[in-house]
Nucleic acid binder design. Structure first.
Length: 803
DNA sequence: TCACAGTGACTTTTT
DNA sequence: GTCACTGTGA
């Protein structure tokens, strides 16, 4: 594509950002301001106009999805961009470490331990810890690594004052090094340490990458910042893109300060702001702006809507989450009848657990949906089992994988025997001061004679299986030196793009006709069968009615495009560990509603968005204060700015949590919305009505206040929505909202006999109005329990008894 | 070593 | 309401 073509579609600030050179650059890109267009154009521009070699460009993103999209779009503008390094932070770290494994003290065939593995390893390293505490410390360790702190860092106590922590961290670290593997934090921290300690390596990287760009910079953590610093030489062009208002990963060590203080660390930085929003209609944007302006700690900017006027966002109040999900389903269904595709819609929620209600409802109504993120396919037991086999094959020091598979199905090799083997391997290593080639296999052989008969035979059998599989893989291949810019990058290159994979598949198909080529899928299937895992999980399926075997089959399929070799195995494992976010929903139901957590929506956009569960305790979560609350607010801001055309909020008066029904207060964020640009439906909680109008004066009148939710959606479900939610007995004489409370008082009065679905019969012993203006009754049940209710919202479970 | 039953904790958010 | 951990007993 001609340079003038892709520059001509950009606005002046965007062009300025693309053409900028000579100093570090910070692009503050508001939501929907076309930042990906800018980055991709910049990559293309550097290559085609500035003569930068593609391989000298490193662009890092936060998610695989973003990396893939960036690569595709850059290649569309400039095909040579395919030679640029466009990766996630973690994938870059992994790539780097493969070539510097020895210096980092890890196996070149390392695999990545996830959070669950970390917990297990902590409890193995410090056996005295309870499981719960192990999880706590595992979390602290990963946080420490996010801040690039080792166990002996002097600053470690600033992060966590617990005097036990450094020792536990140290014990974990030793144990991890014994396995030769790394955790997620290491993928960033180890490269930083290597680069900081090794000047020539640093110099090499500086000459290797002349341009370093970082996307979503607001979500980078301290370790990632240090990595960027280490990669930046005197002549390196550094460009970061981010939006401080969209920083939502503080809990994981992301440091907003990275973007707020970027200029301090990179002197001479030029800042370019992109504030023209091309995504959302004006009323949506003004609500977003109203909300985020409540945050103090921000650089500050106002988005300008390019699209202009559109419909106002709508806020709906419901009695409980069943009405909420029913309403959403109904609204989507009605829009669908008018020709709106399901895929236009996204349901956003704070926690994954909230998806369940919607899934149930959508299944019932036969609305296609896909749940993003919570799939956790690779975290399932059977899948982890299968992966453990191949992880162990590529890295026979991998303690956790070994433990996972050696006695599954039960062979009689219990924990005691396992501990013996691990201890032996550790001793082996220290005594000889070198890494045994087959760590745990050799250790097993050493320990074998001392085991009880049953365990001995079982272990022999297991070792035979492993060695058979090992032979199938052929000899180990060594890694060369780090690929310099004249080469194409090496290790993962063959699996780096879909195009490459497709090509490979075609090649496979062609050669398959000549001779039967063993793919990785065949190999994994063979491995799982040989170890007896298939039978084991088949049995489990029969008992529990699970889908374990089917899941295993799916795993085999996903390995079909990789070589049956050690290298292929590693590529596959890397793909799984680092790219799991990229799993696309299957194409067969491409027209589906998206169910997604607010966090997962980063970088996405939808025509119509419903943000659900707007209640205190759900969103924001109950324990959020001050800075954390600001982060929750930014999360809300991210959610709002995903919407292009239509935006809805829903809030429930009561919600089932842990099988218990709790009364909810409205989310304080709702009070921060823009009254001028919001329509409100359903029964407003008193707290909302009062605060919202106080905050916004009388401007709210005429914006749809007081309208019932069911007047908006007229259908068979009417009776359970809106004003009729005052209890079954009132269905026949539901009245207008305004004189509604008086009715409650007479109907649910002291002394009346009632029936509750969960608690049985009882009497009303007390009735009061709360400070919030809610009518609250207390009931003494015959079962002995005493509970309080707000009958206005008790649509389904509480009933008055006739005399 | 394994199976079972009782109990307690749990729900953030993710590379 | 569910899951997973813990301890006990065979």
């Amino acid at each position: 594509m001609n340079v003038h073509d892709y520059l001509s579609v950009l606005n002046p600030e965007q062009v300025q950002a693309v053409k900028h050179e000579g100093s570090p650059l910070l692009i503050l890109a508001g939501a929907g301001s076309g930042k990906t267009s800018v980055i991709t154009a910049k990559i293309a521009y550097l290559i085609s106009e500035k003569g930068v070699r593609p391989s000298q460009i490193l662009a890092v993103t936060f998610t695989k999805k973003a990396a893939t999209e960036m690569m595709e779009r850059a290649c569309r503008l400039e095909p040579l961009a395919s030679k640029a390094q466009i990766r996630t932070f973690h994938s870059f770290g992994s790539w780097f470490l493969r070539y510097h494994a020895a210096e980092a003290g890890i196996s070149p065939n390392f695999t990545v331990y996830d959070d669950t593995d970390m917990v297990t390893l902590v409890s193995k390293a410090v056996p005295s810890l309870q499981k719960k505490n192990a999880a706590h410390y595992a979390h602290l360790i990963s946080l420490a690594k996010d801040y690039c702190l080792t166990w002996d860092s002097p600053e470690l106590p600033e992060l966590e004052a617990d005097p036990d922590f450094p020792e536990i961290y140290r014990a974990y670290e030793n144990r991890l090094r014994e396995t030769g593997n790394v955790d997620f934090g290491d993928l960033i921290m180890l490269p930083v340490i290597l680069l900081q300690d090794n000047e020539s390596l640093r110099a090499f990287m500086h000459s290797r990458f002349r341009v370093v760009m970082v996307d979503e910079y607001q979500d980078s953590n301290v370790a990632q910042f240090k990595l960027l610093q280490a990669l930046s030489g005197d002549d390196t062009y550094v460009c970061v893109v981010g939006d401080d208002d969209q920083s939502i990963y503080r809990f994981r060590g992301a440091e907003v300060q990275n973007i707020l203080t970027f200029q301090d660390h990179f002197p001479g930085t030029e800042i370019i702001k992109l504030v023209r929003n091309y995504r959302s209609v004006a009323p949506i944007l003004s609500n977003a702006d109203c909300v985020v302006s409540n945050n103090k700690d921000r650089l500050g900017k106002n988005l300008v809507s390019v699209r202009g006027e559109g419909g106002k966002p709508q806020l709906f109040f419901f009695a409980n989450q069943d009405e909420e999900s029913a309403f959403c389903a109904q609204m989507i269904e009605e829009a669908h009848k008018k020709g709106c595709p399901y895929s236009d819609w996204a349901i956003l929620y704070r926690t994954n657990a909230q998806s369940l209600n919607f899934e149930t409802e959508f299944l019932h109504k036969k609305i296609p949906y896909s749940v993003v993120g919570s799939l956790k396919f690779y975290e399932r037991e059977e899948v982890k089992d299968a992966l453990a086999i191949i992880s162990f094959l590529v890295n026979p020091r991998d303690e956790l994988s070994f433990r996972r598979i050696v006695n599954k199905p039960p062979r009689g090799i219990g924990e005691v025997s396992q501990d013996k083997i691990i201890a032996r391997a550790a001793a082996n290593r220290t005594d000889a001061n070198l890494v045994p080639k087959l760590g745990l296999v050799e250790a097993s052989l050493d320990v074998l004679p001392s085991l009880p008969k049953k365990a001995k035979n079982a272990l022999k059998e297991f070792l035979d299986i492993i060695s058979e599989l090992d032979e199938m893989l052929g000899p180990e291949e060594a890694y060369g030196s780090f690929p310099d810019e004249s080469e194409d990058g090496g290790l993962e290159e063959s699996a780096a793009s879909d195009a490459a994979l497709a090509e490979k598949a075609a090649h496979k198909a062609a050669s398959a006709s000549k001779e039967k080529v063993l793919t990785l899928a065949d190999f994994i299937e063979e491995a799982v069968k040989k170890t007896g895992l298939v039978e084991y999980h088949e049995a489990q399926d029969e008992i529990a009615g699970t889908q374990k075997v089917a899941n295993l089959q799916e795993l085999f399929n996903s390995a079909a495009l990789y070589d049956c070799s050690r290298k292929g195995l590693l590529e596959f494992l890397d793909h799984i560990e680092l790219d799991r976010a990229a799993e696309e929903p299957s194409e067969e139901n491409s027209d589906a509603v998206t169910l997604i957590t607010l966090h997962n929506t980063k970088g996405l956009e939808f025509s119509r968005v419903i943000i659900t569960g707007m209640e205190t305790g759900v969103f924001p979560r109950a324990d959020k204060k001050e800075e954390d609350l600001e982060e929750e607010r930014r999360l809300f801001y991210v959610g709002i700015t995903r919407a292009k055309d239509e935006l809805y909020f829903t809030s429930c008066a009561s919600r089932r949590l842990y099988g218990r029904t709790d009364f909810m207060e409205v989310s304080p964020f709702l009070m921060e919305l823009d009254a001028e640009n919001l329509s409100v439906y359903g029964r407003q909680p008193a707290a909302f009505r009062r605060n919202f109008q106080t905050l916004h004066g009388n401007s709210a009148s005429g914006t749809g206040f007081g309208k019932n939710a069911d007047s908006f959606v007229n259908s068979g479900r009417k009776s359970s929505l809106g004003s009729a939610s005052s209890g079954r007995i009132l269905n026949t004489n539901a009245t207008a909202d305004d004189d509604f409370d008086d009715t409650l008082e007479t109907v649910w009065r002291k002394g009346k006999r009632v029936y509750h679905d969960d608690f049985g019969y009882g009497y009303i012993t007390n009735a009061i109005y709360s400070d919030e203006g809610e009518y609250i009754i207390t009931i003494a049940f015959e079962c002995g329990r005493k509970k309080s209710f707000m009958p206005a919202y008790q649509a389904s479970s509480l009933m008055l008894c006739g005399e």
